[in-house]
Design a protein around this nucleic acid. Structure first.
Length: 491
RNA sequence: GUCCCCAUCGUCUAGCCAGGUCUAGGACACCAGCCUUUCAAGCUGGCGACACGGGUUCGAAUCCCGUUGGGGAUACCA
Protein backbone atom coordinates (compact mmCIF):
# COMPACT_ATOMS: atom_id res chain seq x y z
CA UNK A 1 0.00 0.00 0.00
CA UNK A 2 2.68 2.36 -0.89
CA UNK A 3 4.49 3.67 -3.85
CA UNK A 4 7.72 5.50 -3.38
CA UNK A 5 9.08 6.96 -6.56
CA UNK A 6 12.38 8.75 -6.64
CA UNK A 7 12.24 12.15 -8.30
CA UNK A 8 15.08 11.66 -10.75
CA UNK A 9 14.20 12.34 -14.32
CA UNK A 10 10.93 12.02 -16.13
CA UNK A 11 7.88 10.39 -14.61
CA UNK A 12 8.23 6.81 -15.71
CA UNK A 13 5.44 4.46 -16.80
CA UNK A 14 6.99 1.93 -14.43
CA UNK A 15 6.22 4.27 -11.57
CA UNK A 16 2.64 4.55 -12.75
CA UNK A 17 2.48 0.77 -12.97
CA UNK A 18 3.63 0.34 -9.38
CA UNK A 19 1.32 3.12 -8.26
CA UNK A 20 -1.65 1.54 -10.00
CA UNK A 21 -1.19 -1.84 -8.37
CA UNK A 22 -0.51 -0.36 -4.97
CA UNK A 23 -3.57 1.82 -5.29
CA UNK A 24 -5.71 -1.09 -6.42
CA UNK A 25 -4.58 -3.27 -3.55
CA UNK A 26 -5.10 -0.57 -0.94
CA UNK A 27 -8.46 0.36 -2.37
CA UNK A 28 -9.63 -3.23 -2.52
CA UNK A 29 -8.77 -3.81 1.12
CA UNK A 30 -9.88 -0.50 2.49
CA UNK A 31 -6.34 0.67 3.11
CA UNK A 32 -4.48 3.87 2.53
CA UNK A 33 -2.24 4.40 -0.44
CA UNK A 34 0.82 6.41 0.45
CA UNK A 35 2.92 8.36 -2.00
CA UNK A 36 6.35 8.97 -0.62
CA UNK A 37 9.14 10.82 -2.36
CA UNK A 38 12.46 9.04 -2.09
CA UNK A 39 14.83 11.89 -2.71
CA UNK A 40 17.85 10.68 -0.80
CA UNK A 41 20.11 10.95 -3.81
CA UNK A 42 21.18 14.57 -3.55
CA UNK A 43 22.93 14.59 -6.87
CA UNK A 44 20.03 13.39 -8.95
CA UNK A 45 16.81 14.37 -7.22
CA UNK A 46 15.07 17.55 -8.23
CA UNK A 47 11.93 19.32 -7.17
CA UNK A 48 10.91 19.75 -10.80
CA UNK A 49 10.99 16.05 -11.27
CA UNK A 50 8.93 15.52 -8.12
CA UNK A 51 6.32 17.96 -9.31
CA UNK A 52 6.12 16.19 -12.63
CA UNK A 53 5.60 12.84 -10.96
CA UNK A 54 2.73 14.21 -8.92
CA UNK A 55 1.23 15.85 -11.99
CA UNK A 56 1.52 12.71 -14.05
CA UNK A 57 -0.18 10.54 -11.50
CA UNK A 58 -2.93 13.12 -11.16
CA UNK A 59 -3.37 13.19 -14.90
CA UNK A 60 -3.67 9.41 -14.90
CA UNK A 61 -6.35 9.68 -12.25
CA UNK A 62 -4.57 7.56 -9.67
CA UNK A 63 -5.20 9.29 -6.35
CA UNK A 64 -3.12 8.92 -3.20
CA UNK A 65 -4.36 9.24 0.34
CA UNK A 66 -1.16 10.53 1.84
CA UNK A 67 1.70 12.30 0.14
CA UNK A 68 3.99 15.31 0.07
CA UNK A 69 1.22 17.61 -1.12
CA UNK A 70 -1.32 16.35 1.42
CA UNK A 71 -1.66 16.47 5.15
CA UNK A 72 -1.23 13.08 6.72
CA UNK A 73 -0.65 11.55 10.11
CA UNK A 74 2.78 10.15 9.26
CA UNK A 75 4.45 12.97 7.38
CA UNK A 76 6.57 14.48 6.14
CA UNK A 77 6.37 12.36 3.01
CA UNK A 78 9.59 13.58 1.51
CA UNK A 79 12.62 11.70 2.73
CA UNK A 80 14.92 14.70 2.50
CA UNK A 81 12.76 16.22 5.25
CA UNK A 82 13.14 13.22 7.53
CA UNK A 83 16.91 13.23 7.94
CA UNK A 84 16.78 13.58 11.72
CA UNK A 85 14.61 10.52 11.95
CA UNK A 86 17.10 8.40 10.06
CA UNK A 87 19.97 9.77 12.10
CA UNK A 88 18.33 8.71 15.32
CA UNK A 89 17.56 5.29 14.02
CA UNK A 90 20.93 4.61 12.53
CA UNK A 91 22.61 5.69 15.77
CA UNK A 92 20.49 3.14 17.51
CA UNK A 93 21.83 0.46 15.18
CA UNK A 94 25.43 1.47 15.71
CA UNK A 95 24.79 1.48 19.44
CA UNK A 96 23.43 -2.05 19.38
CA UNK A 97 26.14 -3.29 17.06
CA UNK A 98 23.75 -4.09 14.22
CA UNK A 99 25.61 -1.53 12.15
CA UNK A 100 29.10 -0.06 12.18
CA UNK A 101 31.03 2.90 10.86
CA UNK A 102 33.17 2.47 7.79
CA UNK A 103 35.94 4.98 7.23
CA UNK A 104 36.84 3.76 3.77
CA UNK A 105 36.83 6.41 1.09
CA UNK A 106 35.15 6.14 -2.26
CA UNK A 107 38.60 5.74 -3.77
CA UNK A 108 39.37 2.83 -1.41
CA UNK A 109 36.20 1.10 -2.49
CA UNK A 110 36.84 1.79 -6.13
CA UNK A 111 40.31 0.31 -5.85
CA UNK A 112 38.93 -2.70 -4.05
CA UNK A 113 36.37 -3.25 -6.78
CA UNK A 114 39.12 -2.96 -9.35
CA UNK A 115 41.17 -5.62 -7.59
CA UNK A 116 38.16 -7.87 -7.33
CA UNK A 117 37.45 -7.50 -11.01
CA UNK A 118 41.03 -8.41 -11.87
CA UNK A 119 41.23 -11.43 -9.63
CA UNK A 120 37.70 -12.46 -10.52
CA UNK A 121 36.88 -12.46 -6.86
CA UNK A 122 33.22 -11.69 -6.70
CA UNK A 123 32.70 -12.09 -2.99
CA UNK A 124 30.43 -9.59 -1.37
CA UNK A 125 31.64 -6.47 0.34
CA UNK A 126 32.13 -6.87 4.05
CA UNK A 127 33.32 -3.51 5.24
CA UNK A 128 36.97 -3.16 6.15
CA UNK A 129 36.11 -1.57 9.47
CA UNK A 130 33.62 -4.21 10.44
CA UNK A 131 35.71 -5.43 13.37
CA UNK A 132 36.96 -2.04 14.50
CA UNK A 133 36.62 -1.59 18.23
CA UNK A 134 33.46 0.36 19.10
CA UNK A 135 35.33 2.90 21.20
CA UNK A 136 37.99 3.51 18.59
CA UNK A 137 35.29 3.89 15.98
CA UNK A 138 33.36 6.39 18.05
CA UNK A 139 36.53 8.33 18.72
CA UNK A 140 37.38 8.60 15.05
CA UNK A 141 33.86 9.72 14.25
CA UNK A 142 34.01 12.38 16.93
CA UNK A 143 37.29 13.53 15.49
CA UNK A 144 35.34 14.38 12.36
CA UNK A 145 36.53 11.53 10.22
CA UNK A 146 34.12 11.14 7.31
CA UNK A 147 32.48 7.75 7.24
CA UNK A 148 29.51 5.74 6.13
CA UNK A 149 27.46 3.41 8.25
CA UNK A 150 27.09 -0.18 7.15
CA UNK A 151 24.75 -2.93 8.11
CA UNK A 152 26.43 -5.84 9.86
CA UNK A 153 25.23 -8.79 7.83
CA UNK A 154 25.76 -12.29 9.23
CA UNK A 155 28.64 -14.25 7.70
CA UNK A 156 26.82 -17.52 7.71
CA UNK A 157 23.40 -19.03 7.82
CA UNK A 158 20.50 -18.47 5.53
CA UNK A 159 17.85 -15.84 5.12
CA UNK A 160 14.38 -17.17 4.54
CA UNK A 161 11.96 -14.66 3.12
CA UNK A 162 8.43 -14.72 1.85
CA UNK A 163 7.16 -13.05 -1.26
CA UNK A 164 3.40 -12.94 -1.61
CA UNK A 165 3.56 -14.09 -5.23
CA UNK A 166 6.55 -16.39 -5.18
CA UNK A 167 6.34 -17.99 -1.77
CA UNK A 168 9.49 -18.82 0.12
CA UNK A 169 12.82 -17.52 -1.17
CA UNK A 170 16.13 -18.47 0.45
CA UNK A 171 19.48 -16.79 0.31
CA UNK A 172 22.78 -17.46 2.05
CA UNK A 173 23.83 -14.54 4.25
CA UNK A 174 27.43 -14.62 3.09
CA UNK A 175 26.17 -13.60 -0.35
CA UNK A 176 24.72 -10.40 1.03
CA UNK A 177 26.97 -7.37 1.31
CA UNK A 178 27.29 -5.08 4.29
CA UNK A 179 24.92 -2.52 2.86
CA UNK A 180 25.69 1.14 3.38
CA UNK A 181 22.80 2.59 5.35
CA UNK A 182 24.02 6.13 5.78
CA UNK A 183 26.18 7.90 3.25
CA UNK A 184 29.02 10.17 4.25
CA UNK A 185 26.86 13.18 3.37
CA UNK A 186 24.51 12.21 6.18
CA UNK A 187 21.76 11.08 3.82
CA UNK A 188 20.37 7.59 4.24
CA UNK A 189 20.39 5.10 1.41
CA UNK A 190 17.15 3.70 0.09
CA UNK A 191 17.45 0.65 2.30
CA UNK A 192 17.53 2.45 5.62
CA UNK A 193 15.07 5.19 4.76
CA UNK A 194 12.68 2.72 3.25
CA UNK A 195 12.55 0.39 6.22
CA UNK A 196 12.34 3.19 8.78
CA UNK A 197 9.62 5.00 6.86
CA UNK A 198 7.60 1.92 6.10
CA UNK A 199 7.55 1.08 9.78
CA UNK A 200 6.81 4.61 10.93
CA UNK A 201 4.16 5.09 8.27
CA UNK A 202 2.55 1.81 9.23
CA UNK A 203 2.92 0.27 5.81
CA UNK A 204 1.39 -3.19 5.88
CA UNK A 205 2.19 -4.33 2.36
CA UNK A 206 5.14 -3.39 0.27
CA UNK A 207 4.34 -3.82 -3.39
CA UNK A 208 7.34 -2.89 -5.49
CA UNK A 209 9.38 -3.91 -8.51
CA UNK A 210 11.19 -7.20 -8.85
CA UNK A 211 14.54 -5.44 -8.86
CA UNK A 212 14.23 -5.26 -5.07
CA UNK A 213 14.06 -8.98 -4.36
CA UNK A 214 17.79 -9.15 -3.98
CA UNK A 215 17.86 -6.57 -1.24
CA UNK A 216 15.00 -8.06 0.73
CA UNK A 217 17.39 -9.91 3.10
CA UNK A 218 18.90 -6.59 4.12
CA UNK A 219 15.52 -5.09 4.72
CA UNK A 220 14.38 -8.04 6.78
CA UNK A 221 17.57 -7.86 8.80
CA UNK A 222 16.88 -4.19 9.48
CA UNK A 223 13.38 -4.86 10.73
CA UNK A 224 14.83 -7.49 12.99
CA UNK A 225 17.58 -5.22 14.26
CA UNK A 226 15.00 -2.59 15.17
CA UNK A 227 12.80 -5.20 16.76
CA UNK A 228 9.93 -4.40 14.39
CA UNK A 229 7.49 -6.67 12.67
CA UNK A 230 8.10 -6.54 8.97
CA UNK A 231 5.37 -5.80 6.46
CA UNK A 232 4.45 -8.29 3.77
CA UNK A 233 6.32 -8.10 0.53
CA UNK A 234 5.19 -8.53 -3.00
CA UNK A 235 7.47 -8.01 -5.96
CA UNK A 236 5.85 -7.15 -9.26
CA UNK A 237 7.41 -8.20 -12.55
CA UNK A 238 9.32 -5.53 -14.44
CA UNK A 239 7.93 -3.96 -17.58
CA UNK A 240 10.12 -4.89 -20.52
CA UNK A 241 11.34 -3.37 -23.75
CA UNK A 242 9.99 -4.63 -27.02
CA UNK A 243 13.44 -5.77 -28.17
CA UNK A 244 14.85 -9.23 -28.76
CA UNK A 245 16.10 -9.60 -25.22
CA UNK A 246 13.20 -8.01 -23.41
CA UNK A 247 15.39 -5.99 -21.12
CA UNK A 248 13.98 -3.86 -18.33
CA UNK A 249 11.98 -1.04 -19.88
CA UNK A 250 14.34 1.84 -20.56
CA UNK A 251 14.09 5.09 -22.39
CA UNK A 252 17.04 4.19 -24.52
CA UNK A 253 14.76 2.02 -26.62
CA UNK A 254 11.23 3.15 -25.90
CA UNK A 255 9.39 6.21 -24.76
CA UNK A 256 9.03 5.57 -21.04
CA UNK A 257 7.90 8.94 -19.88
CA UNK A 258 4.25 9.39 -19.01
CA UNK A 259 4.65 12.83 -20.54
CA UNK A 260 5.37 11.23 -23.89
CA UNK A 261 2.09 9.33 -23.93
CA UNK A 262 0.24 12.41 -22.89
CA UNK A 263 1.89 14.54 -25.57
CA UNK A 264 1.37 11.86 -28.20
CA UNK A 265 -2.36 12.02 -27.58
CA UNK A 266 -3.09 8.96 -25.49
CA UNK A 267 -5.92 9.20 -23.02
CA UNK A 268 -5.08 8.66 -19.37
CA UNK A 269 -7.82 6.08 -18.96
CA UNK A 270 -6.40 4.07 -21.85
CA UNK A 271 -2.90 4.16 -20.44
CA UNK A 272 -4.10 3.10 -17.00
CA UNK A 273 -6.20 0.39 -18.59
CA UNK A 274 -3.22 -0.86 -20.57
CA UNK A 275 -1.00 -0.91 -17.49
CA UNK A 276 -3.69 -2.85 -15.67
CA UNK A 277 -3.49 -5.50 -18.36
CA UNK A 278 0.19 -6.07 -17.65
CA UNK A 279 0.11 -9.18 -15.50
CA UNK A 280 -3.61 -9.55 -15.06
CA UNK A 281 -6.70 -10.55 -16.98
CA UNK A 282 -10.42 -10.34 -16.48
CA UNK A 283 -12.58 -13.41 -16.02
CA UNK A 284 -15.09 -12.25 -18.62
CA UNK A 285 -12.38 -11.60 -21.19
CA UNK A 286 -13.27 -7.92 -21.61
CA UNK A 287 -10.04 -6.01 -21.72
CA UNK A 288 -11.42 -2.53 -21.64
CA UNK A 289 -11.87 -1.67 -18.02
CA UNK A 290 -12.08 1.40 -15.85
CA UNK A 291 -9.91 2.02 -12.85
CA UNK A 292 -12.82 1.17 -10.59
CA UNK A 293 -13.55 -1.97 -12.56
CA UNK A 294 -9.94 -3.01 -12.20
CA UNK A 295 -9.97 -2.35 -8.48
CA UNK A 296 -13.21 -4.26 -8.00
CA UNK A 297 -11.75 -7.48 -9.34
CA UNK A 298 -8.20 -6.93 -8.21
CA UNK A 299 -6.51 -9.87 -6.61
CA UNK A 300 -2.81 -9.82 -5.90
CA UNK A 301 -2.49 -13.58 -6.30
CA UNK A 302 -3.69 -13.43 -9.88
CA UNK A 303 -0.73 -11.48 -11.14
CA UNK A 304 1.35 -13.45 -13.58
CA UNK A 305 5.08 -13.34 -13.10
CA UNK A 306 6.52 -13.24 -16.60
CA UNK A 307 7.87 -9.77 -17.31
CA UNK A 308 5.36 -8.20 -19.72
CA UNK A 309 6.56 -6.37 -22.80
CA UNK A 310 5.27 -2.82 -22.90
CA UNK A 311 4.14 -3.11 -26.49
CA UNK A 312 2.02 -0.19 -27.53
CA UNK A 313 -0.03 -1.89 -30.27
CA UNK A 314 -2.66 -2.87 -27.80
CA UNK A 315 -2.49 0.50 -26.09
CA UNK A 316 -3.36 2.17 -29.39
CA UNK A 317 -6.30 -0.17 -29.87
CA UNK A 318 -7.57 0.54 -26.37
CA UNK A 319 -7.11 4.25 -26.86
CA UNK A 320 -9.14 4.08 -30.06
CA UNK A 321 -11.94 2.33 -28.20
CA UNK A 322 -12.07 5.01 -25.54
CA UNK A 323 -12.13 7.66 -28.21
CA UNK A 324 -14.99 5.98 -30.07
CA UNK A 325 -17.02 4.48 -27.30
CA UNK A 326 -16.67 6.74 -24.29
CA UNK A 327 -16.51 10.25 -25.64
CA UNK A 328 -19.39 12.00 -27.33
CA UNK A 329 -18.69 14.89 -29.69
CA UNK A 330 -18.58 17.48 -26.94
CA UNK A 331 -16.33 15.41 -24.74
CA UNK A 332 -14.01 14.65 -27.64
CA UNK A 333 -13.83 18.34 -28.49
CA UNK A 334 -12.87 19.06 -24.92
CA UNK A 335 -10.14 16.47 -25.01
CA UNK A 336 -8.78 17.80 -28.26
CA UNK A 337 -8.74 21.35 -26.95
CA UNK A 338 -7.07 20.45 -23.71
CA UNK A 339 -4.58 18.22 -25.48
CA UNK A 340 -3.10 20.61 -28.03
CA UNK A 341 -5.72 22.83 -29.58
CA UNK A 342 -5.93 25.36 -26.83
CA UNK A 343 -5.69 29.07 -27.55
CA UNK A 344 -2.38 29.47 -25.75
CA UNK A 345 -0.71 26.88 -27.87
CA UNK A 346 -2.16 28.13 -31.12
CA UNK A 347 -0.95 31.61 -30.20
CA UNK A 348 2.51 30.23 -29.56
CA UNK A 349 2.50 28.77 -33.04
CA UNK A 350 1.33 31.98 -34.71
CA UNK A 351 4.79 33.59 -34.91
CA UNK A 352 6.03 30.55 -36.80
CA UNK A 353 3.03 30.35 -39.10
CA UNK A 354 2.26 33.99 -39.87
CA UNK A 355 5.27 34.70 -42.11
CA UNK A 356 4.61 31.52 -44.09
CA UNK A 357 0.88 31.84 -44.44
CA UNK A 358 -0.55 33.08 -47.71
CA UNK A 359 -4.08 32.06 -46.91
CA UNK A 360 -5.67 30.77 -43.76
CA UNK A 361 -6.06 27.60 -45.72
CA UNK A 362 -2.32 27.00 -45.56
CA UNK A 363 -2.61 26.49 -41.84
CA UNK A 364 -3.41 22.81 -41.95
CA UNK A 365 -0.46 21.56 -43.94
CA UNK A 366 1.93 24.11 -42.52
CA UNK A 367 1.36 23.19 -38.90
CA UNK A 368 0.34 19.54 -39.14
CA UNK A 369 3.59 18.31 -37.61
CA UNK A 370 2.93 20.42 -34.53
CA UNK A 371 -0.25 18.51 -33.85
CA UNK A 372 1.03 15.02 -34.46
CA UNK A 373 2.48 12.12 -32.59
CA UNK A 374 4.85 10.97 -35.32
CA UNK A 375 5.62 12.31 -38.74
CA UNK A 376 5.88 10.39 -42.04
CA UNK A 377 9.51 9.86 -42.91
CA UNK A 378 11.26 9.21 -46.18
CA UNK A 379 14.73 7.83 -45.49
CA UNK A 380 16.05 9.32 -48.72
CA UNK A 381 15.22 12.79 -47.40
CA UNK A 382 17.29 12.25 -44.29
CA UNK A 383 20.70 13.29 -45.53
CA UNK A 384 23.63 15.13 -44.10
CA UNK A 385 25.77 16.83 -46.71
CA UNK A 386 29.07 15.08 -47.22
CA UNK A 387 28.40 12.42 -44.64
CA UNK A 388 27.53 8.74 -44.60
CA UNK A 389 24.32 7.45 -43.13
CA UNK A 390 26.18 6.09 -40.11
CA UNK A 391 27.54 9.53 -39.37
CA UNK A 392 24.08 11.04 -39.53
CA UNK A 393 22.76 8.41 -37.17
CA UNK A 394 25.51 9.44 -34.78
CA UNK A 395 24.58 13.08 -35.14
CA UNK A 396 20.96 12.36 -34.28
CA UNK A 397 22.01 10.28 -31.30
CA UNK A 398 24.33 12.98 -30.00
CA UNK A 399 21.55 15.50 -30.40
CA UNK A 400 19.20 13.32 -28.39
CA UNK A 401 21.72 13.14 -25.59
CA UNK A 402 22.39 16.86 -25.69
CA UNK A 403 18.69 17.64 -25.55
CA UNK A 404 18.12 15.19 -22.73
CA UNK A 405 20.66 17.05 -20.65
CA UNK A 406 18.78 20.32 -21.03
CA UNK A 407 17.22 21.68 -17.90
CA UNK A 408 14.86 23.98 -19.72
CA UNK A 409 13.55 22.93 -23.07
CA UNK A 410 13.08 26.18 -24.96
CA UNK A 411 14.14 27.44 -28.37
CA UNK A 412 17.07 29.34 -26.98
CA UNK A 413 18.59 26.51 -24.97
CA UNK A 414 17.94 24.07 -27.79
CA UNK A 415 19.72 26.34 -30.20
CA UNK A 416 22.71 26.72 -27.89
CA UNK A 417 22.92 22.97 -27.43
CA UNK A 418 22.62 22.08 -31.09
CA UNK A 419 24.92 24.87 -32.26
CA UNK A 420 27.50 23.64 -29.81
CA UNK A 421 27.14 20.15 -31.18
CA UNK A 422 27.45 21.33 -34.79
CA UNK A 423 30.59 23.28 -33.92
CA UNK A 424 32.17 20.29 -32.24
CA UNK A 425 31.39 18.15 -35.24
CA UNK A 426 32.72 20.90 -37.49
CA UNK A 427 29.53 21.07 -39.47
CA UNK A 428 28.00 24.15 -41.01
CA UNK A 429 24.78 24.96 -39.23
CA UNK A 430 22.92 24.99 -42.51
CA UNK A 431 23.96 21.45 -43.39
CA UNK A 432 23.66 20.22 -39.85
CA UNK A 433 20.07 21.31 -39.34
CA UNK A 434 18.65 20.06 -42.64
CA UNK A 435 18.05 16.46 -41.58
CA UNK A 436 16.56 17.71 -38.33
CA UNK A 437 13.88 19.58 -40.22
CA UNK A 438 12.99 16.36 -41.96
CA UNK A 439 12.96 14.40 -38.71
CA UNK A 440 10.73 16.96 -37.01
CA UNK A 441 8.30 17.71 -39.80
CA UNK A 442 8.80 15.14 -42.53
CA UNK A 443 9.94 17.88 -44.89
CA UNK A 444 13.17 19.77 -45.47
CA UNK A 445 11.30 23.06 -45.59
CA UNK A 446 9.28 23.71 -42.51
CA UNK A 447 8.73 25.93 -39.49
CA UNK A 448 11.91 27.09 -37.68
CA UNK A 449 13.65 24.15 -36.06
CA UNK A 450 14.30 25.22 -32.49
CA UNK A 451 10.89 26.80 -32.02
CA UNK A 452 9.32 23.72 -33.54
CA UNK A 453 11.14 21.52 -31.06
CA UNK A 454 10.04 23.70 -28.18
CA UNK A 455 6.42 23.56 -29.22
CA UNK A 456 6.47 19.85 -29.92
CA UNK A 457 8.12 19.33 -26.54
CA UNK A 458 11.01 17.25 -25.27
CA UNK A 459 9.30 13.88 -25.38
CA UNK A 460 7.98 14.04 -28.91
CA UNK A 461 11.18 15.67 -30.14
CA UNK A 462 13.16 12.78 -28.76
CA UNK A 463 10.81 10.20 -30.20
CA UNK A 464 10.97 11.83 -33.64
CA UNK A 465 14.74 11.87 -33.63
CA UNK A 466 14.69 8.25 -32.59
CA UNK A 467 12.23 7.50 -35.37
CA UNK A 468 14.64 9.15 -37.81
CA UNK A 469 17.43 6.90 -36.57
CA UNK A 470 15.18 3.90 -37.06
CA UNK A 471 14.27 5.06 -40.55
CA UNK A 472 17.97 5.12 -41.35
CA UNK A 473 18.34 1.53 -40.31
CA UNK A 474 18.64 1.89 -36.57
CA UNK A 475 21.61 1.59 -34.30
CA UNK A 476 22.82 -1.62 -32.72
CA UNK A 477 23.80 -1.99 -29.10
CA UNK A 478 27.41 -2.24 -30.12
CA UNK A 479 27.23 0.90 -32.23
CA UNK A 480 25.55 2.71 -29.35
CA UNK A 481 28.47 1.83 -27.10
CA UNK A 482 30.87 3.30 -29.65
CA UNK A 483 28.80 6.45 -29.90
CA UNK A 484 28.70 6.74 -26.14
CA UNK A 485 32.46 6.63 -26.01
CA UNK A 486 32.83 9.23 -28.71
CA UNK A 487 30.21 11.40 -27.04
CA UNK A 488 32.01 11.20 -23.70
CA UNK A 489 35.16 12.39 -25.43
CA UNK A 490 33.27 15.40 -26.79
CA UNK A 491 32.16 16.73 -23.43
C1' G B 1 31.55 -15.07 -12.76
C1' U B 2 28.05 -15.59 -8.50
C1' C B 3 23.27 -15.31 -6.39
C1' C B 4 17.96 -14.53 -6.94
C1' C B 5 13.60 -14.58 -10.03
C1' C B 6 11.01 -16.18 -14.38
C1' A B 7 9.49 -19.47 -18.77
C1' U B 8 1.97 -20.98 -22.89
C1' C B 9 0.82 -18.07 -29.99
C1' G B 10 5.13 -12.27 -32.67
C1' U B 11 2.74 -9.39 -28.13
C1' C B 12 -0.75 -9.25 -23.53
C1' U B 13 -2.79 -13.38 -21.25
C1' A B 14 -6.54 -17.97 -19.54
C1' G B 15 -5.49 -22.85 -17.92
C1' C B 16 -1.02 -24.65 -13.44
C1' C B 17 -1.69 -24.21 -6.75
C1' A B 18 -6.24 -28.92 -5.87
C1' G B 19 -2.92 -33.69 -13.05
C1' G B 20 -7.91 -36.17 -17.21
C1' U B 21 -13.36 -31.91 -19.51
C1' C B 22 -6.82 -28.85 -23.46
C1' U B 23 -7.09 -31.95 -30.94
C1' A B 24 -4.56 -25.47 -25.11
C1' G B 25 -9.31 -20.56 -24.67
C1' G B 26 -9.54 -15.04 -25.32
C1' A B 27 -7.42 -10.23 -26.89
C1' C B 28 -3.78 -7.18 -29.87
C1' A B 29 -1.07 -7.49 -34.32
C1' C B 30 -1.02 -9.89 -39.10
C1' C B 31 -3.73 -12.21 -43.44
C1' A B 32 -8.40 -13.15 -46.14
C1' G B 33 -13.59 -12.39 -46.96
C1' C B 34 -18.16 -9.57 -46.02
C1' C B 35 -20.13 -4.62 -45.47
C1' U B 36 -19.04 0.00 -47.85
C1' U B 37 -18.32 6.06 -52.64
C1' U B 38 -12.50 5.71 -50.12
C1' C B 39 -10.26 4.78 -45.55
C1' A B 40 -11.30 3.45 -40.83
C1' A B 41 -14.85 1.07 -37.74
C1' G B 42 -17.94 -3.35 -37.58
C1' C B 43 -18.79 -8.60 -38.76
C1' U B 44 -16.86 -13.59 -40.27
C1' G B 45 -12.87 -16.71 -40.90
C1' G B 46 -7.55 -17.88 -41.00
C1' C B 47 -2.38 -18.03 -39.25
C1' G B 48 -0.16 -18.95 -34.63
C1' A B 49 2.29 -21.37 -28.43
C1' C B 50 2.71 -25.41 -23.68
C1' A B 51 11.58 -23.88 -24.41
C1' C B 52 14.16 -28.84 -24.20
C1' G B 53 15.31 -33.59 -21.72
C1' G B 54 14.34 -36.94 -17.94
C1' G B 55 11.16 -38.62 -13.96
C1' U B 56 6.35 -39.52 -11.09
C1' U B 57 1.51 -41.28 -12.97
C1' C B 58 -3.20 -45.35 -16.22
C1' G B 59 -2.82 -40.10 -17.74
C1' A B 60 1.43 -33.97 -17.35
C1' A B 61 0.80 -27.35 -20.15
C1' U B 62 -0.29 -28.60 -15.00
C1' C B 63 3.85 -32.15 -9.93
C1' C B 64 9.53 -33.20 -9.30
C1' C B 65 14.69 -32.94 -11.19
C1' G B 66 18.09 -31.30 -14.79
C1' U B 67 19.37 -28.38 -19.12
C1' U B 68 18.69 -24.17 -22.03
C1' G B 69 16.99 -19.35 -22.55
C1' G B 70 15.66 -14.61 -20.56
C1' G B 71 15.55 -11.00 -16.76
C1' G B 72 17.25 -8.80 -12.20
C1' A B 73 21.00 -7.92 -8.49
C1' U B 74 26.03 -7.58 -7.46
C1' A B 75 26.92 1.43 -6.24
C1' C B 76 28.25 6.40 -0.63
C1' C B 77 21.34 5.12 -7.44
C1' A B 78 16.73 4.21 -6.37
Amino acid sequence: MRVAPSPTGDPHVGTAYQALFNYAFAQRHGGQFVLRIEDTDQARSTRTSETKILESLSWLGIPWHEGPDKEGPYGPYRQSERLDIYRIHVDQLVESGAAYRDFSTKEDLEAQRQRQAETKDFSMTKGEYRELDAKASAARAEGGDPHTIRLRVPLEGECVMTDLLRGEIRREWYLVDDQILMKSDGFPTYHLANVVDDHLMKISHVIRGEEWINSLPKHLLLYQAFGWDSPQFCHLPLLRNNDANKTKLSKRRNPTSIDYYRAAGFLPEALVNFLALMGTSQADGEEKLSLDGFVANFNLNDISLGGPVFDTDKLRWLNARYLREDLDDDALCDRLFSWALDRERVKAILPLARPRLETLGDWGFLTAHLFADAVPLEASELVLKGAETQELIGVFQFAIWRLEALERFNAESIQTALRGLADQLELKMRDFTRPFYVAMSGRAASTPLFETMEIVGPDLTRSRLRAAIEALGGVSGKATKKLEKRYAGMQ
